[in-house]
């Protein structure tokens, strides 16, 4: 576990796309460290309570205003089947792009941005079907730390996608502006 708190430095940092392919944002959900390619991350923002949406799937926390756009926020804790965190002091929302859709992911805290060379990454075809590991695509080694690298596409599964398409099309019909 990294001891220092990098959260503030990383907050509101806008990622320009010039970042290295091997760079990862390292964050914590529960007791594990996760990594997400920097290239897929748009911005990390301080946690704010999303506007709840009736009938939404359980792991959808709600929507927030992200620079004038209304985007959904997914709770990684809920996605992994963990209970809500009581202390939300370091909680942040990572704004990322999944299949051209902008979504926010709530995580416990951001640790740092790190380089994980390709030879330190092991693909995870033989993982179990545990909630936590279902969304992984690889495991990276950072010194003696194990970083679980997330597969964003899997975070939204097929049914979600379908639901999402339906919802978007109905919404866009009504409110496309």
């Amino acid at each position: 576990m990294a001891g220092t708190d990098n959260t503030i430095d990383l907050l509101n940092l806008q990622f320009t796309g010039n970042e290295n392919e091997q760079q990862y944002i390292i964050f914590m959900v529960g007791k594990e460290e996760f990594g997400l390619e920097v290239l897929k991350v748009q911005e990390i923002i301080r946690y704010l309570v999303p506007t709840k949406i009736p009938h939404a799937p359980m792991y959808v926390e709600g929507v927030i205003d992200f620079r004038g756009e209304v985007i959904p926020v997914l709770s990684m804790r809920k996605r992994f089947g963990l209970p809500d965190k009581e202390d939300i002091e370091f909680q942040v929302i990572i704004v990322t792009e999944v299949n051209t859709k902008i979504i926010g992911l709530t995580v416990d805290r951001v640790l740092d941005i790190a380089n994980i060379p390709e030879d330190k990454i092991q693909l995870t075809t033989d993982f179990t079907t545990q909630e936590k590991t279902k969304y992984l695509k690889a495991v990276g080694k950072l010194g003696n730390r194990l970083i679980l690298l997330l597969d964003l596409d899997k975070i939204m599964n097929f049914n979600d996608e379908k639901l999402l398409e339906e919802i978007i099309s109905s919404v866009e019909k009504t409110v496309d502006s």
Partner: peptide
Amino acid sequence: IKRVNKSLGTTR
């Protein structure tokens, strides 16, 4: 009214 841009956001 904002369209909920390219993302999951609302229900029926």
